[in-house]
Design a binder for these strands. Structure first.
Length: 206
DNA sequence: CCACGGATTGGCT
DNA sequence: GCCAATCCGTGGA
């Protein structure tokens, strides 16, 4: 995809984000996540997500209601919710639904398409040449934030008004969406709220 | 005030 | 496959 084409693709709308969290989660794979900095574009195709909901989902940060950490989950569809994980990493979520929904979609894996060199530097602190590196760059929620330079300072931003956003994919090929239970959690493990693109090279635990 | 554990990752066995 | 790293939000005392 040409860079010009990518930047003229339409941003996902408030109407899209305001849908039910499962509807958004099923439709985010294939879309393009973009971080636009002063002199560079970092972008990739979303290939794996998980839905988290305040309602009936004990694994969700919002399950027990609004707190200091999860405030962004109550800010309405199209807001970014970033939290620190294990004190070491950051994870990024797309808030869905209306104000106070407490629902969000976790970005679990992305297939890089622009700014790969910069992502490598962001992740490893230096340039590394390796064929194997590409698959390992953004195939996890903490890795995505590291590669795209996302941290707590980006928590609560509106995806429609900032340098971080998601656009339609004008060159998307047909793909099969796989539904499964979520991974890395200990509560509500029965909910089939993980969605990923079948045969993607950028997903662990297929 | 304090103790606990987690929506992860990477290194070592 | 197993486990340490590392820290802060959260909830109970």
């Amino acid at each position: 995809m040409k860079l010009k084409s990518l930047l003229t693709n339409q941003k996902l709308t408030k109407e899209f984000y305001n849908q039910n969290v499962l509807e958004v989660a099923r439709n985010l794979p294939g879309k393009i996540f973009v971080v636009k900095n002063r002199n560079q574009i970092l972008a990739g195709v979303i290939v794996e997500v998980e839905a988290y909901s305040m309602l009936g989902d004990k694994a969700s940060h919002s399950y027990n209601g609004k707190t200091v950490r999860n405030t962004s989950m109550f800010s309405g569809g199209g807001v970014l919710y970033v939290y620190s994980s294990y004190g070491i990493h950051f994870c990024a979520n797309i808030v869905t639904g209306e104000i106070n929904s407490g629902d969000a979609v976790l970005l679990r894996a992305i297939e890089p398409i622009y700014g790969v060199n910069q992502m490598v530097i962001n992740r490893f602190g230096k340039e590394i040449i390796s064929n194997n590196l590409f698959k390992n760059l953004t195939n996890g929620p903490g890795k995505i934030c590291s590669a795209f330079g996302i941290d707590k300072k980006n928590d609560g931003i509106d995806l429609s008004k900032n340098h971080i956003f998601i656009v339609e994919n004008s060159e998307l090929r047909d793909f099969e969406l796989v539904e499964s239970t979520r991974i890395g959690i200990t509560k509500s493990t029965d909910l089939p709220w993980r969605f990923y693109i079948k045969n993607s090279q950028n997903i662990l635990n297929k």
